[in-house]
Design a binder for these strands. Structure first.
Lengths: 188, 188
DNA sequence: GGCTCGATGTCAGTTACTGTCATCGACCGT
DNA sequence: ACGGTCGATGACAGTAACTGACATCGAGCC
């Protein structure tokens, strides 16, 4: 693999996921990732801000999808419903790559620093959702609460989706979790 | 300040908060913190796992308070109500140190790494709440959802408490946020 | 065929963090 | 009072993440 092979960024992502899975995140050096991708350490840091970010490259695109889905939802929909629908759109994308998602999640779950990064990515989704709701006329604190509650629903649905062997549909699990949240907050 | 002055840990915490506030988190080195506390860099890392953790020493005690409050709540209380009450107990403690909380929060808000650490601390609160609920007979996913929803409520109430100059009572703001969440999830 | 420009390589430097061993000083028993 | 023990600290070397500065390559363009 020479200096000018295509898709350097993609090669780095693949190499990182493979090495993190084989020997663990902490036991992998950035130099090793770069070497497997046929590049140097310095080039790794030109593509990714730090050693963790290489696992979260797709997060921005999913956030954009969520925001545009929410932005195009009917005005008549209640905020929490619109948020859930937007998150289901992201869920549908993940559904198409379940094996990859599981491999990636097992790496993340094994390391606290990676879990931190995942949390801040989800927090940025919540902030984007809240912004979009506010642009649609939802006032605070309802906008933030709907966004945060939606992310909580997504988080729990995602966890079930990853751990269950039954292969339930992630969008369906999101729907079910929202219904559960409604039951929990309604007082039983 | 000699080698055996008392409360080395507390001195490190004070020095770190002061320096992070004066010149920013990234512009402060651990060696500088240790020097201000009359200690060495190596000793800093014996008291705190990393450069961020020095700001989160109190998190564990608050988590314990939340858990014990939840564990001693009446069985008749609905899970989300018991969770909110437990978080109000933490809120009452913070209320007593509003100025310190504001200073600390302004440092955290200014740096992404510190925000990550804060998110994982809140996630550990959620996990502890969920565990405690399950021990009291609440089944999944209701336990996780009540815990995560409670943390979302706390997060938003805390943010308002920090930013509002009116000095509203944090426990009250938590109560109000919970009511708002109920309204949001009930469909308006 | 030379030029330009973005992507990569090279190299030196800083700093967070760790392992190891030496040292200090409070406490304890005699 | 004296020596021994032990936890807390210091000293020092080392690894690896991350950055800045400058050189180099190769694709496209005129």
């Amino acid at each position: 693999m020479g200096r000018w092979e295509p898709d350097a960024r993609g090669r780095l992502e693949q190499a990182a996921l493979a090495l993190y899975g084989e020997r663990g995140y902490e036991q992998t050096t950035v130099a090793e990732i770069a070497a497997r991708a046929g590049l140097t350490e310095r080039t790794f840091f030109r593509h990714f801000a730090d050693k963790r970010e290489v696992l979260f490259a797709g997060s921005g695109a999913l956030r954009d999808l969520i925001v545009s889905t929410l932005a195009s939802s009917p005005d008549s929909a209640a905020p929490i419903e619109a948020v859930a629908t937007a998150l289901q759109a992201a869920g549908a994308v993940l559904q198409e790559r379940r094996e990859y998602a599981q491999q990636r999640q097992s790496v993340i779950a094994a390391n606290a620093e990676l879990r931190e990064r995942e949390l801040i990515k989800l927090a940025s989704w919540a902030a984007a959702l809240s912004d979009t709701l506010r642009r649609r006329g939802v006032t605070e604190p309802a906008a933030s609460l709907a966004a945060e509650a939606g992310i909580a629903v997504f988080r729990i649905a995602f966890e079930r989706w990853i751990n269950e062997s039954t292969g339930n549909d992630l969008p369906h699990l999101i729907r079910d979790s929202l219904d559960e949240l409604k039951a929990v907050t309604a007082g039983k």
